[in-house]
Amino acid sequence: MHIGVLEDDTDQQDFIEQCLIAAGHRISQFTRASELRRAIQTQAFDMFIIDWRLPDASGMDVTMNLRQHDGWKGPILFITASDEEENIVLALESGADDFLSKPLRPRELSARINALARRTGFQAQDTREQLGAYTLHSSQREVQFAGEHVKLTEREFRLVSLFFNHPGELLSRARLLEVVWGINGDVSTRTVDTHISRLRRKLTLDGSHGVRLRSIYQHGYRLEAQAMLH
Rank of each mutant, 00 (worst) to 15 (best):
M1F: 01
G4S: 13
V5M: 09
T10G: 00
Q13W: 03
D14P: 00
F15T: 14
I16V: 14
L20N: 00
A22F: 03
R26L: 02
S28I: 11
F30K: 05
T31Y: 07
T31E: 03
T31G: 13
A33S: 13
R38C: 02
T42N: 02
Q43H: 09
M47G: 09
I50E: 02
I50V: 13
I50P: 10
P55W: 12
M64A: 06
N65S: 12
L66C: 11
Q68C: 12
G71E: 11
G74V: 13
I76K: 03
I76Q: 06
F78L: 02
S82P: 01
D83P: 01
E84Q: 02
N87Y: 15
G95F: 12
L100E: 11
S101L: 02
L104A: 15
R105T: 10
E108M: 01
A115M: 07
Q125A: 07
D126T: 12
R128S: 04
E129I: 15
L131R: 09
Y134I: 11
S138I: 12
Q140Y: 00
E142F: 01
E148Y: 12
E148H: 14
V150E: 08
K151Q: 15
F163M: 01
G168P: 14
R173C: 14
A174N: 08
R175T: 15
V179T: 10
N184Q: 10
N184L: 09
T189K: 08
T189S: 12
R190G: 14
D193W: 06
H195L: 10
R198Q: 02
R200D: 08
R201K: 14
K202I: 07
L203A: 05
V211D: 05
Q218L: 12
A225E: 05
Q226F: 05
